[in-house]
Amino acid sequence: MPDVVADGLHVLFCGINPGLMTAATGHHFARPGNRFWPVLHLSGFTPRLLRPWEQEELLSYGLGITNVVARATARADELTAEEYAEGGRLLTAKVKRLRPRWLAVVGVTAYRAAFADRKAAVGPQERTIGDTRVWVLPNPSGLNAHWTARTMAEEYARLRVAAEADAAGA
């Protein structure tokens, strides 16, 4: 699954791994019912609702997408601890190379596994990768039912405000 990335992004969103629909279409968060694209718009990151096939437009907003693990699966619980750990190492190298202001990992369980931080919670993290700050966001999968689109958008908007403040101060 190709990344949507560039050097110096405001926010690099990091999914857990491609789902089967994403792998089949070549578009991130492509499964109907995944709330990433609506939440991105509701939170103010994009001026309109983008569709998965418009993912390259994110770059014009200083946003990008990658994944912790490259292997496509039907469900994230099919991934091994070793895949998460290796994914965390590869993601760290990618972030050091691309230097986004923020890395936003969408899924607290994935973040905990990839970075060996069992106590991490949704929100800004103490960890940095070089100068890149880290924020953990709720997973937008439809399987994550205890977060609604509205409550997810509120958390994503907290990151957007922090990213905008950083950009204004830079």
Results as ranks from 00 to 15, higher is better:
Ala74Arg: 06
Ala6Pro: 09
Val122Arg: 01
Val39Thr: 06
Arg71Leu: 00
Phe29Cys: 12
Ala162Cys: 09
Phe45Cys: 04
Val39Ile: 11
Arg158Tyr: 09
Leu98Gly: 05
Arg112Tyr: 08
Leu49Glu: 03
Ala157Asn: 12
Arg133His: 15
Val39Asn: 12
Ala76Ser: 05
Glu83Ser: 05
Leu79Cys: 08
Val105Arg: 14
Arg51Glu: 13
Gly107Leu: 01
Glu154Met: 14
Arg31Glu: 10
Glu56His: 10
Ala72Asp: 05
Thr148Ala: 05
Ile16Asn: 13
Ala72Met: 00
Gly87Asn: 07
Thr128Trp: 14
Asn144Lys: 09
Glu82Phe: 11
Pro38Lys: 13
Asn17Glu: 09
Leu59His: 14
Lys119Glu: 15
Ala72Phe: 01
Pro140Ile: 04
Leu9Trp: 14
His27Val: 06
Ser43Leu: 05
Ala74His: 14
Ala93Asn: 15
Thr151Met: 07
Glu126Pro: 11
Glu82Tyr: 01
Ile16Ala: 03
Tyr84Val: 03
Ala74Met: 13
Pro138Gln: 15
Ser60Lys: 15
Ser141Arg: 04
Ala162Met: 04
Glu86Ala: 00
Arg75Gly: 09
Thr109Trp: 00
Cys14Asn: 05
Leu63Ile: 06
Val68Gly: 00
Asp117Thr: 11
Leu137Ala: 12
Thr92Ser: 15
Pro47Ser: 09
Ala114Ile: 13
Ala76Gln: 09
Lys96Tyr: 14
Thr80Ala: 06
Cys14Ser: 03
Tyr156Leu: 08
Pro38Gln: 02
Val122Phe: 03
Leu12Arg: 01
Trp102His: 09
Arg133Met: 02
Val106Glu: 14
Arg31Lys: 10
Asn17Arg: 01
Phe45Gln: 11
Gly62Cys: 02
Ser141Trp: 05
Val39Tyr: 04
Arg160Thr: 06
Arg99Glu: 01
Lys119Arg: 08
Pro124Gln: 15
Met152Cys: 13
Leu9Phe: 01
Asp7Pro: 06
Phe45Ile: 13
Glu164Thr: 03
Glu86Pro: 08
Arg75Ala: 07
Ala162Gln: 10
Glu82Leu: 09
Arg160Phe: 00
Arg97Trp: 15
Ala145Arg: 03
Gly44Asp: 03
Gly19Asp: 05
Glu56Phe: 11
Glu82Met: 08
Tyr156Val: 13
Ala120Glu: 08
Trp37Lys: 12
Trp135Asp: 09
Leu79Asn: 05
Phe29Leu: 00
Phe29His: 07
Met21Leu: 15
Phe115Ser: 12
Ala93Pro: 07
Asp166Arg: 15
Glu154Pro: 07
Val5Met: 07
Gly88Ala: 02
Arg127Met: 15
Gly87Tyr: 00
Trp147Arg: 13
Gly26Arg: 12
Met152Phe: 06
Thr25Ser: 07
Arg35Gly: 04
Val95Gln: 01
Gly64Phe: 10
Ala165Asn: 14
Glu164Ser: 14
Ala104Pro: 10
Met21Thr: 15
Val68Cys: 04
Asn34Gly: 03
Ala120Pro: 02
Glu57Tyr: 07
Leu40Val: 13
Val5Arg: 13
Met21Tyr: 11
Phe29Ala: 07
Thr128Ser: 14
Pro100Lys: 04
Leu49Cys: 09
Val95Ser: 01
Ala163Lys: 09
Thr148Arg: 08
Tyr111Pro: 00
Asp7Asn: 14
Lys119His: 15
Arg133Ile: 03
Glu56Ser: 01
Leu90Trp: 12
Asp117Lys: 15
Leu42Phe: 02
Thr66Val: 02
Thr92Arg: 06
Ser60Arg: 12
His27Thr: 02
Glu54Cys: 07
Trp37Asp: 13
Gly88Phe: 06
Thr66Ser: 00
